[in-house]
Computed example of a mutant assay.
Amino acid sequence: MGETSLRVAMRDHPQGMVSEGDFLVEQTPRPAPGPGQALVRVRHLSLDPYMRPMMNPVRSYVEPLKPGQTMPGATVGEVVESNEEALPVGAHVACMLGWQEYGLVTKDAARIVDLDPGDISLALHVLGMTGATAHYGLLHLGDPKPGETVVVTAASGAVGSVVGQLAKIKGCRVLGIAGGPEKCRYVTEELGFDECLDHRADDFEQRLAELTPDWVDILFENVGGPVLDALLPRMNDHGRVVLCGNISDYNRDEPYGLKGISHLLLHRVNVYSFVIADHRDYWPGAIGELAGWVKEGRIRFREDVAKGGLKGAPSAFISMLTGRNFGKQLVEVAPANVASPAGN
C-alpha cells in the first residue's frame, strides 16, 4: 500500500506514576490483509486502568509489555479492505487492535457492531467489555437481593456507573463513592444512586458510618487503598466483596497492602476477584440484556472523548489514572467523517 499507520508503544517500564515520556509515538507501515484477514481503520480507542499494570515487568494474568511493544486496548473501527467474507468493507467491528490507527483482524478476533455509526463507541463501554464487567461482577458474583445495601467505589467511572444502575434495577439501596462534589452530583442526580460520598472529604468515614447503619452487603471495589480500608469495617456478616480493580495501587512502586483483612474473617465475608476476559462466553447474554436497559433509558452513561487522534492518548491515559476524566475514557482516533482509504 505504501501508506503508514501511527502507533503508540511503551518506551520503557514506568517508575511510579506513568508519564508521557514513557510512551513512544511513531509511524509504521500500514499492513495489508492476507487471506482470511481484514484491515480495520480504528475510530475509537478505549483507555482502561488495566493497561497500567501491564506496563510493569511482573507476573500477572497476561504477559507484561516489553519496551517497544504497542500499547494494548479495545478498539472499534471500520473495515476498509477485506479478504474475509464475514468482515465486509464498510462493516463496523469491535476488536483488540491497541493504540494504533490501522490493524489486521480475522473473523474470530472481531465482533460485528450492529449500531448506528454515531453510536459505535458504545461497543467499547456499556455494550462491550465495561458493561460485561459490571454485569458479571455484580449480578453473577455479587448476587444482589432487593433491599440490600450496595457500595460502589469509583462510582462515576465507566464500570462503577453501570454497576450502581444495575443494583438499582435489582431493587438495592446504592451508595456511590467518587472524587469530588461534581462527580457525586452526577452519580445521584443523573445515574440515580441513593447517595454518593466524596472520599476526599474530611468527614468521609463519619458520613460512611452514618449512611450504612445496617452495614454493607455488597462492596463492588475498583479503587483499593485507604478507601477500601474505610469500607471493610462496614461489611455485613456474610457480605460479598467483588474485587474488580485496584487503581490506587497501579502507580505505586510498592503495594499499599490490605489492612483490614481481620474484618473479612470476623464477618465471614466472601471475596470474589475476577477478570472479565476469562469469561468471554458470558459477554453476549450480558450485552444483550444491557442493550435492552439502555434502550429503555434505565442505564445511562457518559463518555469523556479525547480529540485529536492517538498523539493525545498518553495524556488522556494519565488523566484517567489520576481521576481527572469524567465517565468512560475514549480516544477519537479518526473522526467518522474522515474518508477511508478502501481499495487504495
Rank of each mutant, 00 (worst) to 15 (best):
A74C: 13
A74I: 11
A74L: 15
T75A: 09
T75K: 04
V76N: 06
V76R: 06
G77H: 02
E78Y: 03
E78L: 11
E78S: 12
E78H: 02
V79S: 00
V80S: 03
V80E: 01
E81Q: 13
E81W: 10
E81P: 01
S82G: 06
N83S: 13
N83M: 12
N83K: 15
E84T: 12
E84S: 14
E85Q: 13
E85N: 10
E85W: 02
A86R: 15
L87T: 02
L87S: 00
L87V: 09
L87W: 00
L87G: 00
P88F: 01
P88R: 07
V89T: 14
V89Y: 06
V89H: 06
G90T: 08
A91F: 06
A91Y: 03
A91M: 08
A91C: 13
A91H: 07
A91S: 15
H92A: 14
H92L: 13
H92G: 03
H92W: 15
V93P: 01
V93K: 01
V93W: 01
V93C: 09
A94E: 11
A94P: 08
A94C: 12
C95V: 04
C95I: 04
C95Y: 05
M96G: 08
L97S: 02
L97V: 07
L97H: 03
W99C: 04
W99P: 01
Q100V: 08
E101L: 06
E101F: 05
E101N: 09
E101V: 08
Y102H: 13
Y102W: 03
Y102E: 01
Y102P: 01
Y102C: 05
Y102F: 15
G103W: 02
G103A: 04
G103K: 02
L104N: 08
L104T: 09
V105E: 00
T106L: 10
T106K: 11
T106M: 07
K107P: 07
K107H: 13
D108P: 07
D108F: 12
A109I: 05
A109E: 15
A109T: 15
A110W: 02
A110N: 04
A110V: 11
R111G: 11
I112K: 14
I112Q: 11
I112D: 00
I112M: 11
V113K: 00
V113P: 03
V113A: 04
D114K: 15
D114S: 14
L115A: 10
L115V: 07
L115Q: 12
L115K: 04
L115I: 08
D116W: 04
D116C: 05
D116F: 06
D116S: 14
P117K: 08
P117S: 09
P117T: 09
P117G: 07
P117E: 10
G118L: 09
G118T: 12
D119E: 15
D119N: 13
D119V: 01
I120Q: 01
I120W: 03
I120F: 06
I120D: 01
S121G: 14
S121P: 05
